[in-house]
């Protein structure tokens, strides 16, 4: 018993080590990227001319003076899609942990049926939205 516990602890520490190693390399890539952008911006700062005028700083609106505010109010038609999206995206996340084990020994048919129930729910939801006409504008 103690031996297997030791082995398990060892395996666990190995996993933890490789986990932290992996993500510290990823972090280093992020640092390299930030450095790249910083160097590019600094070099650009040294190279480019600076000659601002009032007209140049105006908001671009096809050459005429801008009308009203830039943060204009528009009709956001997409909000229904946003609801649908949140539902589907959250559901899709649950598929990944399931996907890695469902065909492993001891799972098989039952787990698959469960997935069909899951997909069935998604499909019915989509059909409902479709029937309600939220997927069409015209």
């Amino acid at each position: 018993m103690p031996e297997s516990t030791v082995a398990a602890a060892r395996a666990e520490s190995y996993f933890a080590e490789s986990y932290f190693h992996t993500y510290s390399v990823v972090g280093l890539v992020a640092v390299v990227g930030v450095l790249f952008v910083a160097v590019a911006f600094a070099a650009g700062h040294l190279l480019r001319p600076v000659a601002p005028t009032r007209e140049k700083m105006l908001t671009y609106e096809c050459g005429v003076d801008p009308v009203g505010e830039g943060w204009a109010q528009t009709q956001i038609r997409y909000y229904v899609y946003a609801f649908l999206y949140v539902i589907f995206a959250v559901d899709a996340i649950y598929l990944f942990p399931w996907a890695t084990v469902f065909a492993a020994p001891g799972f098989g048919g039952t787990t698959l049926v469960e997935m069909f129930v899951f997909i069935g729910f998604l499909a019915v939801g989509l059909l409902y939205a479709w029937k309600k006409g939220v997927l069409e504008w015209t």
Partner: peptide, 22 residues
Amino acid sequence: LMAYEVPMLLTAASVAMAAGTV
């Protein structure tokens, strides 16, 4: 973003199912 993200996730999940790993 809302249009493409879900099909992308779902099809990627399909590959993860085939391989049994992510």
